[in-house]
Structures are given as structure tokens and as C-alpha cells.
């Protein structure tokens, strides 16, 4: 059984079909990439998958269960975590605390036990802190653990978001343009990190404009254009696909 199945998903904004009848599957332990020109509907698809927005129609199955229309925090609890293209850092917390928020799913203390400062709360807190710290080490931000998160440069914000998403102990992680703002060296470190994430048993679905990175690390690629899926397959085939080349060429002509 595939980990994630997207069936005929649609998302409409007024007159615009931002995601138009898209279906694909993500298998366990895959690194799958979702690419497409600007405005193709990648972020919109992520939002529809994670409960940030309700899809107009279609179905999302996770681990065989229908999760269509579930709310964002329920989706997180089920085991899908994500990062944001326009990073959504909690600027009022330091870097470590940001990641500790990700532990929310994995902890249980309610407002009353927190209020009373029960020993169980303290134990949970220490555990969270240790786990958060080790995730910061994974993405290479451990030195900034106590820094204000608001001062981080864009690239590191994406890394922080990855650590935070991983803190929810997801089965599937959705990364929305994590390489934005990273230089070449940092990007190659990111690809190591993504491999390591997969190595830890987390499946990866990645939106990325850096084609070098996409072609290097992904097992399979889905291509969107104007909301529609135009191709799906291994990177080598995608690179030669007529329609894909057309879609990206079209964009370049527009840009020129």
C-alpha cells in the first residue's frame, strides 16, 4: 500500500483552478519531488494535503485512511509534517523553542498539569528539549539553539522549519522549496540532510526549483503545470519529456 495517495484532487480559487484533477502516489521511503513553473499549484497542493486549505474535490489517503478535509493539527497528528515556502517561524521564541513546538504532537501535558508543574510535565519537557536539540544538530543549527529565531537568515529559517517538522516524528514530510536562500555548499549539505531524513524512515515529498538538487536526490518526480499533472516518472525520463521541456521553456520565454 502506498503511504500517500492523492486522487483527483482539485482546488479552486474563484475562477482559477489552482490544482486541477491531480492524482499521484508516494511510496514508503521514497524521496519524491513535485516540480513545476511558478504558479503551477505546488504550494496550493501542499495546503490541500495538510489541511491548511480544504480541497474543492478529490481524495487524500494516508496509510490507507481517508484524511480528506481533516484539520491541520489532525493531519500533523496522523503523521504528515511540512515546511513553508514563505517561512512561518515563531519569531517570539528562540530557535530551540521553535523546534520544541514541533514536539507538541508527541507530548500530552494539558493546561492543568502544566499549571501545577507536575513532575511528568518536567520530564516531558526535558525529553522534548533533548530531542529538539538533536534535530537541530541534524540540520546544523545546534550552535544557534538559544538565538532569537527572528535573526536567522532565510536559508537557516528553512533548515529550522525542517527540524521543527521532524520534531513531530512524521511518517511523511513535505518540504516546500527548502533550498531557497541556500548557497551551493549549503544546498549540498541539505541534500545530505534529506538523505538522512529518509534514512531515519521518513518519506519525503519535495517541492523545489533547484533542478540540480531535484534530479540528484529524488526517486520519482511529478510535474505540475497550470494546476494539471503533465508528467510523472524517474528524473532521467522527466528531463527528456517533451511536455515538461515545453512547460519550462514557455516560462522562460515569458520571463524574457
Amino acid at each position: 500500500m502506498p503511504l500517500l495517495e492523492v486522487e483527483n484532487l482539485r482546488k479552486q480559487f474563484g475562477g482559477l483552478m489552482a490544482v486541477d484533477d491531480v492524482s499521484f502516489r508516494v511510496h514508503r521511503d521514497q524521496i519524491k519531488a513535485l516540480i513545476g513553473p511558478n504558479g503551477a499549484g505546488k504550494t496550493t497542493l501542499f495546503n490541500a494535503l495538510t489541511g491548511v486549505d480544504k480541497p474543492t474535490s478529490g481524495k487524500v489517503l494516508f496509510d490507507g485512511a481517508d484524511i480528506t478535509g481533516k484539520r491541520a493539527h489532525e493531519v500533523a497528528e496522523i503523521g504528515i509534517a511540512r515546511t513553508f515556502q514563505n517561512t512561518q517561524i515563531f519569531a517570539n521564541m528562540n530557535v530551540l523553542e521553535n523546534v520544541m513546538v514541533g514536539r507538541h504532537c508527541q507530548t500530552k501535558s494539558g493546561i492543568f498539569s502544566c499549571m501545577l508543574g507536575l513532575p511528568s510535565v518536567r520530564r516531558e519537557d526535558l525529553e522534548s528539549e533533548e530531542r529538539a536539540y538533536s534535530l537541530l544538530t541534524l540540520v546544523g543549527l545546534e550552535k544557534k539553539a538559544k538565538s532569537s529565531s527572528d535573526d536567522l537568515p532565510v536559508g537557516e529559517r528553512h533548515l529550522l522549519e525542517i527540524a521543527r517538522a521532524l520534531a513531530t516524528e512524521p511518517k511523511l514530510i513535505l518540504l516546500d522549496e527548502p533550498a531557497a536562500g541556500l548557497n551551493n555548499e549549503e544546498t549540498s549539505r541539505l541534500s545530505d540532510t534529506i538523505y538522512r531524513i529518509r534514512g531515519n524512515g521518513v518519506t519525503v515529498l519535495l517541492v523545489e526549483h533547484d533542478m540540480g538538487l531535484v534530479m540528484e536526490i529524488s526517486d520519482e518526480v511529478v510535474v505540475l503545470n497550470f494546476g494539471k499533472k503533465i508528467a510523472e516518472g524517474p528524473p532521467l525520463l522527466i528531463q527528456q519529456d517533451e511536455q515538461v521541456i515545453q512547460a519550462y521553456l514557455g516560462q522562460e520565454i515569458e520571463h524574457a
Binding site: 491548511v52 493539527h73 493531519v75 509534517a81 515563531f90 513546538v101 504532537c105
Partner: peptide
């Protein structure tokens, strides 16, 4: 949005 995506109701 990020809070909800981290599982915060």
C-alpha cells in the same frame, strides 16, 4: 498556520 501544522489545536 504553522502552529496548527505542528499539531497545535
Amino acid at each position: 498556520i504553522a502552529a496548527a501544522s505542528m499539531g497545535v489545536d
